[in-house]
């Protein structure tokens, strides 16, 4: 069980990093893409993703009367707010980047779960 949970969290983090990297690349200017920006991007995802997946898993297991979406939406909103705060000062459009990146990674996550 521990291994399965860790594996799920590892896959989720890796997929999120790849998808959000793609979105951030599309939404930022060349001048914004410094080493520190990528470090902040990595740390922002390390801060939010494992916690979000963990909370969603706990919610899925214990709040079985609730649909998954009802559990995931507040978690995703919290993630967007945290990433928005983290990206402030590093990106010119932090809110847009946070919303777009998380919408895309969430969508890819849903597709992955449906497919596999």
């Amino acid at each position: 069980m521990l291994i399965n949970l860790m594996r799920t969290m590892g896959i989720a983090l890796l997929m999120t990093l790849v998808v959000e990297l793609f979105v951030i690349l599309l939404l930022t200017k060349e001048s914004e893409r410094k080493a520190v920006t990528w470090l902040v991007f990595l740390l922002a995802n390390l801060l939010t993703n494992p916690a979000a997946v963990y909370l969603a898993t706990i919610g899925h297991s214990y709040l079985t009367f609730l649909p998954d979406l009802v559990i995931q939406i507040p978690i995703e909103i919290a993630v967007v707010i945290v990433e928005w705060i983290v990206y402030k000062g590093y990106l010119s459009r932090p809110l847009l980047c946070a919303i777009a990146a998380n919408l895309c990674s969430w969508g890819v996550g849903i597709m992955y779960n449906r497919l596999f």
Partner: peptide, 19 residues
């Protein structure tokens, strides 16, 4: 797992604040 996640969150938050 919650303890491990909590540890990662705290360490990451500290690094971000320092940065």
């Amino acid at each position: 797992v919650g303890a491990m996640v909590g540890f990662v969150v705290i360490v990451t938050a500290v690094i971000l604040i320092v940065l």
